[in-house]
């Protein structure tokens, strides 16, 4: 079983775990954004609420939800272990360290960016997920009889501080993805003279679409209600 231990606890193994969970979370973001974009359909949230109802009442989705939480948890725990180990690897810091133009700022600050995203995540789950899952009565129902999550979205994004907080968090997510997406491929050993430029390009496009999309929604709703 030495191999299993190595696969999860060696310095390379931990990076595999980070990469796989990271890419899995990237997939989740696509689904999440697609769902959120439904709020923009001008049908008073009918489609969105119906989709939300589907998501909360399908056993397969519920199972995936557990895996998703596990994914988040493992990604976070592994990163904490890595940060602690990496810090231990340099007990005495440099007095002077010059940034190299070839080294991106996001790659040097993945831990910081991840922490910011974690803060957002806690608030975000508290705001939307907990209510819709555990206290749906708080949100009321729409005229289809589904829980009115749409109403909660519209209400939340009418608050300027919340929208600013949300947008800033998306910037943190953007920088995290800007490096993380292509880095995950490299951690898994997927680097090729021909394909890697494509992966890097894809990562950037992905990041722009995901973060652009997530920013569009609160900004849209905020300006709509003005």
């Amino acid at each position: 079983m030495r191999w299993l231990a190595q696969l999860f606890t060696s310095s390379l193994g931990r990076k595999y775990v980070m990469a796989i969970t990271g890419l899995f979370l990237c997939c989740f973001l696509v689904v999440h954004l697609s769902a959120n974009l439904l709020t923009l359909i001008p049908d008073e949230g009918k489609t969105f609420n119906a989709f939300a109802h589907f998501m909360t009442h399908n056993w397969l989705i519920r199972l995936l939800e557990i895996i998703l939480f596990a994914g988040f948890l493992i990604h976070i725990v592994q990163s904490i272990v890595l940060v602690v180990q990496n810090r231990k690897a340099r007990p005495v810091r440099y007095a002077m360290q010059a940034a190299h133009p070839q080294v991106s700022w996001s790659s040097l600050n993945m831990g910081l960016l991840g922490s910011l995203i974690l803060v957002f995540l806690v608030v975000h789950i508290g705001d939307f997920f907990v209510d819709s899952r555990f206290r749906p009565e708080k949100l009321g129902v729409d005229d289809q009889g589904y829980v009115n999550l749409y109403g909660e979205v519209v209400r939340a994004f009418s608050s300027l501080p919340y929208v600013v907080f949300y947008v800033l968090a998306m910037f943190a997510l953007g920088f995290h993805l800007w490096h993380g997406f292509q880095s995950a491929f490299r951690s898994l050993g997927l680097m090729h003279l021909r394909y890697t430029p494509g992966i890097i390009w894809l990562g950037k496009v992905y990041t722009l679409i995901i973060c652009g999309g997530f920013i569009l929604i609160p900004v849209y709703w905020y300006f709509k209600q003005l």
Binding site: Q6, S10, N86, A89, H100, Q102, S107, L108, S187
Partner: peptide
């Protein structure tokens, strides 16, 4: 590769964040 990585970890070097700082230096 397994033995070298195991020794590398034992020596207390950190993990890789793919920053490319090594290549630049």
């Amino acid at each position: 590769v397994r033995n070298m990585v195991a020794q590398m970890d034992k020596e207390g070097f950190g993990a890789c964040t793919n920053t490319n700082a090594c290549e630049a230096a």
